[in-house]
Amino acid sequence: MEALRDVTRSDDGIDEVSQRLLASAARLSRNALTEIDWDAPLDPDKYGCSPEWSTLYGTAYWDEMTEQQRISLTRHETASIMSIGIWFEMMLQEMVIRDQYLGDYHRPEFQFALTEVADECRHSLMFAKTSHKLTGTSYTPHPRLGRFGKLFMRVAGSEVAYAGILAAEEVLDVLQRGCMRDDRVLPLVRTVNEIHVLEESRHMRFAREEVRQSMQEANWARRQLSSVITAMAVSYILVSLVRPKAYADAGLDHRRAVGEMRRNHHFQSMVRSGCAHLMGFLDDVGLLTRPAARIYRKVHML
């Protein structure tokens, strides 16, 4: 990621944004580990996410379920999404730290980057405790995807790293915003979503600025390559959010559930609508090329 420092850019711009974000973090940061009563019992009649955001909502399988099966499903879906969130937040932390290695420690950019890493550590712990509270377990990506993640962390630099961070966080943000004000959802999940959405808004603002600055000097070939790598990474994360084991743990036929999820036009429409702002940003900075757009369309983000 050293290339990020080699391009000509307005350091005043990124430092100005970072300074504002540092001030926001000082005023508004929250700590779920002390704010939430983790021993409080869960209301058996509350969902893990808004029913409309379930991957099976609108399918024949959903119509066949009892209310308790739907509640169980949404809790396992949320546990899976948060577990995959931990996975890519761990990748995020490594890439940000590597980017800031031997950086200018006095600059706001460096200081906010480390603030972001500290936030992500707390978020990962928050997600881990929530997943355990909801289901007594957690979920990991497919081993092949785990290996891809290790490779991505090694090779991702400049706009690829920050665009990948931004896009993955935007997808999670869309899902959480749809649930955090829904009274049908468990208060625990709503509070966790509220904290994450609030703090990730700073992280996404920082990532957008880093991408814009990095793309200023990107030539055509670099834009093409960066756009495709970013799209591949984001698409892999999106299709892995709800693991097949989560359906099985919820008492469903996981093969049928995965098949219906993949054909669920309602969920596809929700994702596409929620990602409109992200796609607009990627287009604006030159990362929504035709090859990248084809990848996004395959996973219904475009």
Rank of each mutant, 00 (worst) to 15 (best):
A293W: 06
Q268D: 12
M180P: 00
E94C: 00
R122A: 06
H123M: 03
I97Q: 02
F88I: 08
E2L: 10
D15P: 11
D12E: 15
D253V: 02
E116D: 07
S158H: 05
L4R: 12
E169L: 10
L145T: 12
T66W: 12
I237E: 04
M215D: 02
D182T: 03
L287S: 08
A113L: 10
V285P: 11
C179P: 02
M126V: 01
M215E: 04
M95F: 03
I237C: 09
F281G: 09
S273L: 10
S201G: 06
W38S: 04
V96T: 07
D182N: 14
D45M: 14
R243I: 03
E89A: 04
A26S: 07
P51Y: 12
A276L: 13
A168C: 12
M1P: 11
S54D: 05
R262F: 05
Y61R: 14
T191W: 09
M91S: 15
Q224S: 12
M82Q: 05
Q213L: 15
N219E: 12
D63M: 01
E67L: 15
R190K: 13
V234E: 01
V197Q: 01
H76S: 06
H76R: 09
E199Q: 06
F127V: 09
R30V: 02
R297S: 15
A161F: 06
D119V: 09
M261P: 00
T130H: 03
Q68D: 13
T66F: 07
G149L: 04
L56T: 05
T115M: 09
V160A: 11
Q216C: 05
A231H: 11
T137I: 02
H254T: 10
Q176G: 02
Y139T: 06
V117I: 14
I36Q: 01
G157Q: 02
S226P: 01
V299F: 05
H265V: 14
D11A: 05
C275W: 12
Q216I: 04
V17Y: 00
L28T: 01
V17I: 14
L42A: 05
R205I: 04
H266W: 14
D45L: 15
A79R: 06
F88L: 06
E169P: 12
Y61S: 14
Q100L: 15
S131D: 06
F127M: 14
L102K: 04
Q93M: 15
A163C: 11
M279R: 10
G103P: 10
A207F: 11
T66P: 08
D284P: 09
N31M: 01
A32T: 11
E260M: 09
R290E: 15
F112L: 04
Y162H: 13
L302V: 02
L186E: 12
M153R: 15
A218R: 12
S50W: 07
M153N: 15
R243F: 00
S54N: 04
A3N: 12
M153W: 08
F110P: 00
V17N: 02
V185I: 10
M232K: 02
P44C: 13
M204F: 00
G149D: 04
Y296M: 15
D119G: 00
D182M: 07
S29I: 01
S83R: 08
R27N: 09
Q111M: 08
S54C: 08
K133D: 08
D104H: 15
S214F: 07
V185W: 13
G178H: 03
A113W: 10
